[in-house]
Simulated assay, not measured.
Amino acid sequence: MHIVILGLSITSSWGNGHATTFRGLVRELAAQGHRVTFLERDVPWYAAHRDLPQPPYCRTELYADLADLRARFAGEVASADATIVGSYVPEGVAVGEWVQETARGIVGFYDIDTPVTLAKLAEGDHEYLHPSLIAGYDVYLSFTGGPTLERLEREFGSPCARALHCAFDPDLYHPEAVEAAWDLGYLGTYSDDRQPRVDSLLVQPARRWPEGRFVVGGPMYPDTIAWPGNVERRDHVPPDAHRRFYNQQRFTLNVTRDDMIRAGWSPSVRLFEAAACGVPIISDAWEGIDSLFRPGDEILLAERPDEVLAILQGMDDAQRRAIGLRARERVMAEHTAAHRAAQLVALLEALATARRPSAVAEGA
């Protein structure tokens, strides 16, 4: 198949978790024999931080604005077997309207931010998606599974809402023998609604355990945050440094945005990447996490600073390693980028097949 993707960014991972998801998915689509064209709006903040300006597994084109997109790529979109618009694409409503008018193949919306999107729609915020567009997409590919999929179909008229979780690349994320530099680490861009849990599950334990070693990696943290002296800060950890970053942690922390906790069934790509490295994960709790990992056996759940400290100070290395390796076995069996690409292709092929009888009938 020829698949066109209009996404937030594949060329830059700066403050942008979408790049990791798109890179893995597109690479595996190419490995499975499909041709992908990725169209990305050229914006200055990504232009200044392009860590993969020309992905080797797809044709990547930058466009200046909507007029440029329409003028240069209408033929590409019209002839593609499938065209997928991603969440947070600049002027995504206008882009979506144009794609639905132009494409003759399957059209889909890939929402890597589903709970955030639904919260925006409830507030009348149509930054990149309008409710009227949802029924016009043949498939709504959702970062979030569970009851949210039924809601998208029932309340918004999606003809087909399916989970397409984030994933990881086994070639990039795996255990390696490096000396532990930190007892607990966290990797993530700053978010107002996530920060209270970072404070509760990492900063407060660091204050209570001065001998412990902690690290927080990611951009956009305000200068006003008073980090304890035993918390190291890394402003940007590029994707090619993620594996080493995780492997240098005895435990790694996963915290979740409020909208995603409310929706449940919303795993972060960092969750799968850390698990793939065999690093035991301490996570906040949300509905559906037990469908991804067995709590206490493959992942450790904590809601308070004392629970985190009990794990950091009380768990022996053999038990710690065993939990990490069981999590790795789970994600290797279910959550690689190759799994996601295969899921997507099977879904697009099923939708195309379902469409053909009506097309034949109309032609007759």
Rank of each mutant, 00 (worst) to 15 (best):
F38I: 14
D138Q: 07
I3F: 04
T252Q: 10
A161E: 09
P90C: 09
A135E: 12
P147D: 06
A359L: 15
Y190T: 04
D111F: 02
A338N: 13
D125K: 13
E287M: 07
I112C: 09
E61L: 11
A177I: 11
L351S: 08
Y137T: 08
I299V: 15
R328N: 01
D125S: 13
T148G: 05
G96T: 12
E155N: 06
V203A: 11
L52C: 04
A80P: 08
G288K: 15
E232Y: 06
R321N: 13
R23V: 04
D42V: 09
A341W: 00
F73G: 04
R328K: 00
H335W: 13
W286C: 15
C160F: 14
T83E: 01
S13I: 11
G105T: 03
R355M: 08
G288A: 15
A206F: 05
V308E: 03
L325S: 10
A359Y: 06
S283H: 03
E362G: 02
S268P: 04
A318L: 13
C277P: 03
A74G: 04
Q313K: 12
L152A: 04
G15A: 15
E303D: 14
F245H: 06
T144K: 04
A31Q: 06
D68C: 07
P175W: 01
R321S: 14
G217S: 12
T256E: 06
G288H: 15
H126K: 02
A82S: 09
F251W: 02
G86L: 02
V215Y: 00
R104I: 10
G218R: 03
E329L: 05
A302T: 01
T224F: 01
A48C: 05
G17S: 14
C277I: 12
H242W: 00
